[in-house]
Design a protein around this nucleic acid. Structure first.
Length: 227
DNA sequence: AGTTGGATGGTCT
DNA sequence: GACCATCCAACTG
């Protein structure tokens, strides 16, 4: 995946995904049929489906099936390759604006006007400064190690939902990388995360897949620190 | 190292 | 009005 934003190019290798296929998949956003939000899932493959979760995080999906059959793959983790500083700034901005709002009671748009200011955050609260320092110290593999973190690191916007990820003119797109190489033996599969509500068989079907050797794969809460 | 609760607002019943 | 395809900080031990 690669994104061309104002502050430069960011590129990463997708190392973890989850598949959501069809309206009968009770874990899928398409389980209620077509709605304004999930409409891109019913559109042409290769498009983005971006949605907001828990009121704050953005998740990036890739539409995968022909028109009329709703399906998408959630990008759960990305191994940064280029634009790592920009990813750090984007991560700090997303956390910094939230903390500035909550802690200082300031308007987020005024509190941290630019990504650079967000990263430096000289006027931010102690809590915001701590968050920025933490992100500055993260290993590159930890910058997009989770679906919400991918959205933050690549500054994915819900307004980009439905855009073509395969067009060279798109700021956000998929591209064939240098290290495509991955035999099926290098890829592990297991149940999808955070969808227990769907019930069986959907809660257990092994449609989460990840590159076994990658250190950028997400970890369950409680074992999130770098080894 | 593992668990818990808070943030936060669109989306769908 | 309830529910999240989540992350983080603060807490326990």
């Amino acid at each position: 995946v690669r994104v061309d934003r104002a502050d430069g190019l960011r590129i990463g290798r997708i190392v973890e995904v989850e598949a959501y296929v069809g309206e009968d998949d009770l874990a899928s956003h398409a389980r209620f049929g077509r709605t304004p939000r999930n409409a891109p899932m019913y559109g042409p493959p290769g498009a983005a489906y971006v949605y907001r979760v828990y009121g704050m995080h953005r998740c990036l999906n890739v539409v995968t099936e022909p028109v009329g059959r709703p399906a998408a793959v959630l990008v759960r983790a990305v191994e940064p390759i280029a634009g790592i500083d920009a990813m750090r700034r984007a991560r700090a901005e997303s956390v910094g604006t939230r903390r500035a709002t909550r802690v200082d009671g300031r308007d987020p748009d005024e509190a941290l006007a630019t990504p650079a200011e967000a990263f430096a955050a000289p006027a931010a609260s102690g809590a915001a400064l701590a968050a920025h320092a933490r992100i500055a110290g993260l290993a590159p593999e930890a910058l997009a190690r989770g679906p919400g973190l991918v959205g933050a690191a690549f500054s994915v916007a819900v307004e980009e939902s439905g855009t073509d990820l395969c067009a060279a003119s798109s700021p956000l797109r998929l591209a064939i990388g240098d290290t495509v190489a991955c035999s099926s033996a290098d890829v592990m599969a297991g149940p999808r995360v955070g969808i227990a509500y769907a019930g069986e068989p959907w809660a257990s079907v092994p449609w989460r897949m990840w590159v076994a050797a990658s250190r950028a794969v997400s970890r369950p809460a409680g074992s999130r620190g770098l080894p």
